[in-house]
Design a protein around this nucleic acid. Structure first.
Lengths: 146, 146
DNA sequence: GTATATGCAAAACTTTTGCATCCTT
DNA sequence: AAGGATGCAAAAGTTTTGCATATAC
């Protein structure tokens, strides 16, 4: 809520497409959406919008720090809200479910490793592809289209 | 060397394009190459080859376990030889240098985390984008084209 | 009113596919 | 000889861009 405020901070005008995109990320049960995903939601809710606008808005939001962009293993980018603190991802190869996690030991060791190799970390992404075991896969959501 | 032997194990015929692709990965100073990269090397060395063939060969090699495919953050896939044991990557945002590393603690903790969340890991990739500090960046190689 | 944002269409880029021809076995 | 592999061109998928119109401030 109060997306206007978020947008104001970025210097971007509070236009209808932008507000709608934010609200989709805030209300979607799936935190990780591609441009196409967002576009489909808007179209099927009756908005007149172009896919190009979605791409532009997503890119602007990423640069403004509102969204984070991931590539995972699919060749198409997905975005998620940047409200939450940093975390990594496990993606089920069977049902597409995305499990977020954070492990402070992993975070800390990464820093040590990078430092010892004379790198200063800007960002990192740990992406695990895995199979849900029975229990986890019962969280199954609508299958991703790939 | 002895790429014929490697190929034989995969059931793929030892054709000229396939042998050449393998040799490029073996001899290139950059272990991480895109389809376009490989294509350019072959074209500029006088081979008559189609980009489609490169994509087919790379995909076959990946399925055969000869190559590993990464997506990093660029939207285009890069491949590397699978000779070495598993490792993760730090990529310098300044010069494109790719530093490989392996940390057994990180590997072990990943397994624990995935298990505790009811996932069975199939694969993972830890990708760190970072700046070389002075010392590391002196390893600077030809800038990537993006 | 002015600058910015949008929608549409076209283009750019990466990757895949169909098909006739060629090459390995 | 036979099946698989290649090259070319065309298509498919994702993302970007040009431009006239519409919108927010």
């Amino acid at each position: 809520m109060d997306d206007h405020i978020n947008l104001k901070k970025t210097g971007l005008k509070a236009t209808l497409p932008r507000l709608k995109v934010l609200s989709i990320f805030e209300n979607s049960k799936d935190r990780h959406l591609s441009a196409e995903d967002v576009y489909k939601v808007m179209i099927s809710s009756g908005d007149e919008v172009g896919l190009a606008t979605i791409y532009r808005v997503l890119t602007q939001f990423e640069q403004a720090g509102l969204l984070i962009k991931h590539h995972f293993e699919s060749g198409k980018a997905v975005f998620e809200l940047n409200q939450k603190s940093h975390h990594d991802h496990i993606v089920c190869t069977q049902c597409g479910y995305v499990q977020e996690f954070l492990n402070n030991d992993i975070e800390r060791i990464q820093e040590q490793v990078a430092n010892s190799l004379d790198f200063k970390i800007i960002d990192h992404s740990l992406y695990i592809s895995a199979d849900c075991t029975k229990k986890a896969c019962s969280r199954r959501i609508d299958k991703k289209n790939r």
